[in-house]
Design a protein around this nucleic acid. Structure first.
Lengths: 334, 334
DNA sequence: ACCGCTCATGGAAACGATTCCATCATGGTT
DNA sequence: AACCATGATGGAATCGTTTCCATGAGCGGT
C-alpha cells in the first residue's frame, strides 16, 4: 500500500549537518543576514538532505496560516469555476495553497465553513457572500482578512465585482431598442444589486414598471427551471427575458423549448455570463460577458498584498450579440 | 478597515475558566473519559468562551494535517468541476477542508503542487494524475495517502475511474451499428486507457485499424480546436468521431461548423461526458455520460477512511442517445 | 590601548494543542 | 486492616518553526 512513510527531516537536523545553530538555518532560509560562508554551508546541507520547512511549525509560531480560503456558491457553475480558476492562478504565482468551500448560497453552510477556516487559522478569505452583513461582522472581528467577489454586501469590505449597473443597462437598452417594453429579469439569491439596476434602468427608459417582472430562483438547476417555466407560462405578455446567470439562461432555453416558445421569435433572451456553449446553443445566445476569471484574479491580488486596498474594484462587462434577440412581436404569444 | 483582530482563546484559558487542567479539557473535547461533573464544567466554559481548538496546534502535535488535497487538470472543465464538487461534498460531511490545485496536465506543475502540499503536512491527496509513475513514487514515499481519480497510472495506488473500456466499446458498437467504419478518436493527454480500449474495440469489430485515426490534443481549448479542425480537414474519409471529453466535443462542433461539415449528416459525433449544454446544442449531442460527481465522492470516501481499501473502483458509464449520430453517408464528404 | 559599534551567531522561549506518566482518591477484596 | 485495581486528574514533554536576546569577535576612532 503506502510506503514506509519516512520521517520528515527537521531544521534541527539541517543545523547539525551544517554545523550551525537552528536559528542560523532559519535566518538563512528566510533571507536574513548571514556570512557568505555560513549561507553556503546551510544551503548545501539543506539541499543535500532535501529539507522542506514544515508549514505547521512556521504557522503556529507566526500565528497565521499562509494560504487563502475561497468560498463560492457552486463550483459546478461555470462562472464560479472560472472565478476560482482566477484565484488559483494568482495564488499559484505566490506559492500559496487555496482551500475551497461550497456554500450552496446557504448562509448557514457559509457560517459553518467560515468556522472551519478559522479553526485552520486561515486569515485570508475570498468569498462570494451568501449571508448578510451580520455573518461577516463576526468573521471580520475574528481577524479574517476578507475580500468579496462578485457581490458586495458590506461597504467596509474590499470587493471585486462586475459592473452590474452598466451591464443591466446595456441589456435593457438593447432590448428596448428592438421594441420590447415588457422585459423580465430572471434572477437568483444575492443579486439585489442587479435587480436594483434593472428597475432603475426600466424606469429611466420610461418602460412600464411592474414588480412581478422580477422573478427569483434559488441556486439549484431545478429551481431555476421552475422559475423560468413559471415566468414563460404565466406571463405571456413578456417579450424579452434577461437571465441573471448561465444556469438561469440554460433553464430559460430548456423551459422555452418545453413550452413551445420560440427564441427569438416569441421571446428574446439575453443571458448574463458568456460561456463556451452559448455559441453552440440553438439559437446562439446573446450574452452580457463577465470577466469571471479576472474577478477571481484581482480578488486574490487584493487579499494577498493587502496593503492599502481600495474599497471596491468594478470590472467592465460586454454585450456580445448573437442570435437570441429579435424585434418585438406585435401579436401576443397566446 | 478590518477590526481590532481579537486574540483567539486557547485551551489554557478554557482550563482556567473551568478550574481544571489543560489535559482534562483536551480529553473532554476529544471524547476521552472524564467524570460527568467535570465534563459539564468544561463544556460550559468552552461554550461560554466560544472556544475553537486551533487546528495548527493539533496538527503539529499529531504530525499530520487533517484536510485533503485535490489536484485536477482544469477546474474550468465541467467534468473536473463536478468531480471536485463530489470531493467537496463528501469532505464537508466529515468537516474536512479541501485544498485545491490546478495542474494544467503539466507534470512539472503537478510536482510543484505536491511539494506545496507536503510542506503543509497534508497527508491525504486525491489526484487526477498527469505525471507518470515516477512523480508519484516520490509522493508516496513521502508518506502521502494518495487516491487517483479518473485515471490510473500506477497499480499500487487506489483509484476510482469511469469504465472507459465499456464506454468506448458501447460508443464504437453504436457507431458501427449505424454503418460507420472509419471512426476517429479525438483524445488528449492522459487517456491512454481509453485509446487502448478504442483500438481494441475497433479490432474486435473487424473495422480497419489505422493508427492515424487517434488524434491527441493538449488540454487547452485552442489545442482542442486545432486538433478537431485538423482531423476534419485532413481526413475526409472519417464518418464518425468520438470526442474524449466535453471541451473536445465543443471543439469538434465548433470546427465542424467552421468547416461546413454538418452533424450528423456529414459526420456523426459522440462526446464523452454528459454536460447540461449537450442537450441545448444544435444538434443535441449523443454522449457517453460519466458519473463525475460520484467519482469524486467515492475517491474522497476512500481517502478519508483508508482502512483496507480496494485497489480500484470502476464506475459505469451510460450511452445517452440524442441527435448527433446518423447512418453513414455513402458518398465521401469532399 | 581602550572604548563603543556593528555584525554574525546560537541558546532558549514561544506558539497551542495532545498525550505520557505520576499522583491521588475510591471502593472492593482478601 | 491492609492491599490492589480502577479511574479521574494535572503537570510536563513534545511537535518544528521563528524570533528575542545575550555573547563574542572584529574593527575603526580617540
Amino acid at each position: 500500500m503506502s510506503g514506509p512513510a519516512q520521517r520528515r527531516i527537521t531544521i534541527k537536523e539541517v543545523a547539525e549537518a551544517a554545523g550551525v545553530g537552528v536559528a542560523t538555518v532559519s535566518r538563512v532560509l528566510s533571507g536574513g543576514s548571514a556570512s557568505a560562508e555560513t549561507r553556503e554551508k546551510v544551503l548545501a546541507a539543506a539541499a543535500r538532505l532535501d529539507y522542506r520547512p514544515s508549514a505547521l511549525g512556521r504557522n503556529l509560531r507566526r500565528q497565521r496560516t499562509g494560504g487563502i480560503g475561497l468560498l463560492v456558491p457552486d463550483i459546478t457553475d461555470s462562472f464560479y469555476a472560472r472565478l476560482a480558476d482566477g484565484v488559483l492562478s494568482c495564488a499559484r504565482s505566490y506559492g500559496e495553497p487555496v482551500t475551497v468551500g461550497v456554500t450552496g448560497d446557504d448562509p448557514e453552510r457559509e457560517a459553518e465553513l467560515i468556522g472551519t477556516l478559522i479553526e485552520q487559522s486561515m486569515d485570508r478569505l475570498i468569498a462570494v457572500p451568501s449571508g448578510d452583513g451580520e455573518t461577516w461582522g463576526l468573521a471580520l472581528r475574528a481577524g479574517l482578512n476578507v475580500v468579496f467577489a462578485d457581490r458586495r454586501v458590506r461597504a467596509d469590505v474590499p470587493s471585486v465585482v462586475p459592473d452590474d449597473r452598466a451591464g443591466v443597462l446595456t441589456a435593457v437598452e438593447y432590448l428596448a431598442g428592438l421594441g420590447h417594453r415588457k422585459i423580465a429579469y430572471l434572477g437568483r439569491h444575492g443579486q439585489s444589486q442587479r435587480v436594483a439596476a434593472f428597475t432603475s434602468a426600466i424606469a429611466s427608459l420610461g418602460l412600464p414598471a411592474d414588480r412581478d417582472l422580477v422573478v427569483h430562483a434559488r441556486s439549484s438547476r431545478d429551481s431555476a427551471y421552475a422559475a423560468a417555466a413559471g415566468l414563460l407560462q404565466h406571463r405571456a405578455d413578456v417579450t424579452a427575458v434577461i437571465a441573471g446567470g448561465n444556469v438561469l439562461g440554460e433553464a430559460a432555453v430548456l423551459a422555452a423549448r418545453e413550452l413551445d416558445v420560440r427564441i427569438p421569435k416569441d421571446v428574446s433572451l439575453i443571458m448574463f455570463d458568456d460561456v463556451p456553449w452559448a455559441e453552440l446553443c440553438s439559437p446562439p445566445l446573446t450574452v452580457i460577458a463577465q470577466p469571471a476569471q479576472d474577478i477571481g484574479y484581482r480578488a486574490a491580488e487584493l487579499v494577498l498584498r493587502h496593503g492599502r486596498r481600495p474599497p471596491a474594484v468594478t470590472l467592465p462587462t460586454q454585450l456580445v450579440v448573437r442570435a437570441s434577440c429579435g424585434p418585438k412581436v406585435s401579436a401576443p404569444r397566446r
